[in-house]
Structures are given as structure tokens and as C-alpha cells.
Amino acid sequence: MKGFEFFEPTTLAEASQLFAQEHTQLLAGGTDLVIGMKALTEAPQSVISLQKIPGLAGVITEADGSISVGAMTKVREVELSADVQKHHAALAEGAAEIGSIQIRNLATIGGNIAHASPAADTVAGLLVADAQVDIASADGERSVPIDELFTGPGQTVLTPGEIITRFRLPSPSSGSHYIKHKIREVMDLAFIGVAAAVNLDNGTITDARIGLAAVAPTPIRATEAENLLRGNELTEELLEQAGEAAAAASSPISDLRCSAEHRREMVDVLTRRTLQEAVARA
């Protein structure tokens, strides 16, 4: 590990000013950053801890009944939150897929998202929750929809000094589900991840959202498949069409884990499965 300066600001403004400098990194849970620093793939000159800034952690039920999750909330807390489990099961299930319990007790949801890995396990759940990402900087605050946050692997629209503070989940679904394709039962990275969320009215799908991870340079929504579903009852035929449409929306790569073709096929299979389960839960 290379030497670095360590800062523990107590306000967002202070943190943002420090983070606006070059060669800086934010420390949330540290489960990605510290490994990168040890492997010398990350060598920041300054590390800015977010841990002393109040108000960034915790799951809050807002006045309108919607839920918001602070960026510094531990992944384990997201996984176990009764409110998240009830209204955004796909997000809780995604959180439960990250690393081991020890890792989840350190890692934060903000870190999982800001790291901008297309394979992040909480991202598909946030996509199908239509999450709004609150961002703060010394210049003020703004909010972007989660599906506009990412620009490429490891890349986001965040500008120097901008810090994710909170995820707002405005649209509770009546049923959602996340499935990760993997080899090992636990502590594996997503070969692909698929989340689906639906709202039902008397058996008719009034809204459907499908989020895909690890099948494109950024996490994506399968909007074509969603459009097919909206206004219809879920039939075997519709499931197949939705699966195929989601697979068509993906543009996966081949790597050491598996081939692009396998990933695309699994998008099809898992889209059908997550949809079926989401509808069953609705």
C-alpha cells in the first residue's frame, strides 16, 4: 500500500471540498477501496472518510410512506430492514447476495453504487425501485434517477467533489424479486443479476420494471420487456416474450467467468423467473 493522507471531515461541505481535489478517494465501508489500495490498483494521495459525517446512514420511512436509504447505510442493514424487505424485496435480496455477513457489516450501499460496477448486487433492486440518487457537493445538492447515474464500468455522472448522500425509493412495488446467476452459493460475484418489480391490479400488470446487472457496460433497465408486460396479464407466452426482449436488451461481454452467449441466455431465463416470483408476491 502506498502512503496517503487521511481525513475525517464532519460535514459534507468539508468532505466535498477535500474530494474535489485530484488523487482523492472517499472511504465508506472500505471493502473495495482498501483491497484496491493493497493491490496498488488504487493509490490515492488522500483518503476522505465519510464515517464522521452525521445523517448519512439509516433507512428512513418518509412522511409520504416512501422509503429512503442513506448512502452510508451498511449493506447488512439494507438486507435486514423490514421496510426494505416489505416494499423493495429485490433490493433486500440483492444486498443479501453481497460477500459474507462480515463484509456486509462493513460495506455500504453508497459504496456499492458509487463504485459503479455493472455487477453490483444492489443496483438491479434500486433500478426497479426507480431510485432517485441524492448528491451533495460544496456547490449544493441535486438528484438524478439511478438509471442516469452510470456512464460506463466504474464511471458515473458524478463530478469532482460530488458525494452520494441518499437513495430515495418513490415507487413501492407490490412484488419484486432479485436473482443472481453464480457458481458458488454464497460469496460469489454476479455472472448476471436480474431484478423485477410489478404492480398488479386485479391480475393485470399496471407497471413492470426490470433491472439487469452485469450484462452491459452499465446496469440497465429492460424497457422493451417492461412495455410488453404493462397492461397485460402474465401468461406463459408473455413471460417468454419478456425474457427474450430482456435478453435482446443486454449487450454482455465474454470474460473468464462465462461467455456473452451464456449471459444473454441467463437474462432470458432469470427475467422469466424473477417476473414470475414478483407477480406471485404482488
Binding site: 458458488r184 452459493e185 460475484l189 467467468r257
Partner: peptide
């Protein structure tokens, strides 16, 4: 190309 426990998988008790 997989010199670590992320992509060299050893099983856990859950498997």
C-alpha cells in the same frame, strides 16, 4: 488470469 479467491472459487459450507 484468476489469481485470487474472487474468480478462483473454493466452496463454502453453503454449497
Amino acid at each position: 488470469i484468476n489469481p485470487g479467491f474472487v474468480d478462483y472459487r473454493v466452496p463454502t459450507s453453503a454449497d
